[in-house]
Each structure stands twice: as structure tokens, then as C-alpha cells.
Computed example of a mutant assay.
Amino acid sequence: MKKNITQYIIIFFSLILVTSCTTFGKSFSGDFSNIKINSTTRSEVEANYGFPYRAGIDNGFKSYIYVYLKVKPFGELQSKEFVIRFNENDTVKDYAYYSSFENDKKIIFETNK
């Protein structure tokens, strides 16, 4: 009897693992209208988005990378990546946004026709 209960518990938790989603990072939208090139400061970026997942140097410029990952059951991976490079005076030099989420892809292509 005790062996059967243990088997049911293992099966139950295995089903939960297989059917649940796992996320990494904090989700963010694809609306970056609050970011102005050569105007928005690094401090303002941090106030709006928090501290980045990664920070580094890209072609001599400080850069921040924000990442959000969502793993669905059976291994389907969706991701968002927001990359910001800063000028020497800590204002935004440029930024890039990449997403594999269907809603984001629709918004990106609708607004950039």
C-alpha cells in the first residue's frame, strides 16, 4: 500500500513539472516610447526597467541587456531581449529589441510598415 502511494506522489509531481511553465527574468513590453536617444539617462533606464541581467561593453560603449525567457511544457522556448548602449555621458546611444513572442512580433511589424 505504501509503495502505491509513493508511486502516485511521484506521478503527480512529474505531471506538474511536465505541464507547468518556467520563466526567467522580469517581463517587459515592446513599448520603449519613454526612451529618447541622446536624452534618456542610464539612471532613468534603471528606474524604469531595474538593473539589467547583464552589463558590458559593446564597441567601447557601456551596454545593458534585459532578458525574459519563458519555457513552456515540452521545451518550447520564448524569449525577449532588450539591449541598450550608452554614450560617454551616460545617455542612451541606441537600443535594440528582439522577441519570439507572437504578440510582440505582430506589434513590431505593424508599427514598422
Results as ranks from 00 to 15, higher is better:
M1V: 01
M1G: 13
K3A: 09
K3W: 07
N4M: 08
Y8G: 11
Y8I: 03
I9Y: 02
I9A: 07
I11Q: 07
I11G: 04
F13G: 01
L15Q: 03
L17V: 10
V18H: 05
T19L: 12
S20H: 00
T22L: 06
K26R: 12
F28A: 09
G30I: 00
D31F: 05
D31I: 01
D31H: 03
S33F: 06
N34Q: 08
I35Q: 09
I35S: 08
I35N: 11
I37Y: 06
I37G: 07
I37A: 07
I37H: 12
S39E: 02
E44N: 03
E44Q: 08
V45T: 00
V45F: 01
A47D: 00
F51D: 05
P52A: 12
P52V: 05
A55S: 15
G56Q: 02
I57N: 08
I57W: 05
I57A: 02
D58K: 01
D58L: 05
F61R: 10
S63L: 01
S63N: 15
Y64N: 15
Y66T: 15
Y68H: 14
L69E: 09
K70I: 02
V71A: 00
K72F: 00
K72A: 00
P73H: 10
F74C: 12
F74L: 14
G75E: 10
L77R: 14
K80H: 13
F82M: 08
F82E: 07
V83Y: 15
V83W: 15
I84Q: 07
I84L: 00
F86H: 09
N87R: 08
N87C: 07
N89D: 13
D90C: 06
D90R: 04
D90L: 05
T91A: 12
V92P: 08
A96T: 02
S99F: 12
S100A: 07
S100N: 03
S100R: 01
S100Q: 03
S100F: 02
F101W: 05
F101A: 08
N103T: 10
N103W: 10
I108T: 14
F109K: 11
E110T: 10
E110F: 12
E110D: 09
T111S: 15
T111V: 13
N112F: 05
N112A: 07
N112R: 04
